[in-house]
């Protein structure tokens, strides 16, 4: 087995005496699609923030390609949040081109003339890839929720990140639109050789999209000192045969944990 692409070694996170996460041990290979579920407040968003670099683990190690991960957001880790991931003051094209402009114009962060045309042409390719080509001159507030998320994805991918972090990206979307987004994200994942970490509340979605499903929960069930114990990854399920598995085949009730106990 080759070295892990991303490795958590006894990672923990606490705020003062409040332990959010503890004893996290996991390693992920390049190209995996990890979906993460768990009850509210179980630390899956904190976990994603550690990967993103906006939070730092308090104990243990978090290795990225064998090196300690950079503790602030960087270009090798793209992100799509549930909301507010796009810039309202820029047109759709400019939103996507911004990543190129940052890279090529250190002083102004803005390109002109030939270079700008090149950046816009590249932006157009990504807009094509996410199916937003027709809306390229609009502003984000003119787009529907699903289109805004497509834009946020295109915006991230123009930087060719190795890792894509998704924080409940489809949580606010209608079911029909969500299905389209699933198809899109799977297509982009394969085409761009991405490693994806995705937090979701929707277990069906987690099973359908992921190659690996993580469940965050508290291993101890003593309620009296839940502050002293953090949550961790209690189940790590490899999911295979995705092609035969349809999202609609999985009829799990909303209440997640009991079902998973049986699955496990």
């Amino acid at each position: 087995m080759k070295d892990a692409f991303i490795a958590f070694q006894r990672c923990g996170k606490h705020y003062g005496s409040h332990v959010v996460l503890e004893k996290l041990n996991a390693s992920v290979q390049e190209g995996e699609f990890v979906t993460m579920v768990g009850t509210s407040g179980c630390g899956k968003s904190t976990f994603l923030k550690m990967l993103l670099g906006t939070e730092t683990q308090t104990t243990g190690k978090l290795l990225f390609n064998g090196q300690p991960i950079v503790a602030e957001p960087s270009e090798d880790r793209g992100v799509v949040f549930q909301k507010y991931s796009v810039f309202p003051h820029l047109s759709v094209r400019d939103n996507v081109a911004l990543g190129r402009e940052f890279a090529e114009s250190p002083l102004l962060g803005k390109l002109f003339g030939q270079k700008r045309r090149q950046a816009l042409a590249e932006a157009d390719q990504w807009l094509e890839a996410v199916g937003l080509a027709a809306a390229r001159d609009k502003y984000p507030h003119e787009l529907s929720g699903g289109m805004q998320q497509r834009l946020a994805i295109a915006q991230a991918l123009i930087k060719h990140p190795k890792v894509l972090l998704l924080d409940e990206p489809f949580g606010a979307l209608d079911p029909g639109i969500r299905k389209d987004m699933h198809a899109l994200i799977l297509k982009l994942w394969k085409e761009n050789n991405l490693t994806i970490f995705m937090v979701t509340h929707d277990l069906q979605e987690a099973f359908y999209l992921g190659t690996r499903l993580w469940v965050f929960d508290w291993p101890q069930h003593e309620a009296q000192d839940s502050d002293q114990h953090g949550a961790t990854i209690t189940f790590d399920l490899p999911i295979e045969q995705r092609d035969e598995l349809q999202a609609s085949d999985l009829e799990f009730p909303e209440n997640e944990s009991p079902v998973l106990m049986e699955v496990a």
């Binding site: 270009e75 793209g78 992100v79 507010y84 911004l98 990543g99 940052f102 962060g109």
Partner: peptide, 15 residues
């Protein structure tokens, strides 16, 4: 979220 996103797009503080 916007500021984090901009950082993942490679923006410096100034940019």
């Amino acid at each position: 979220e916007q500021l984090v996103k901009a950082q993942t797009l490679g923006g410096s503080s100034w940019q």
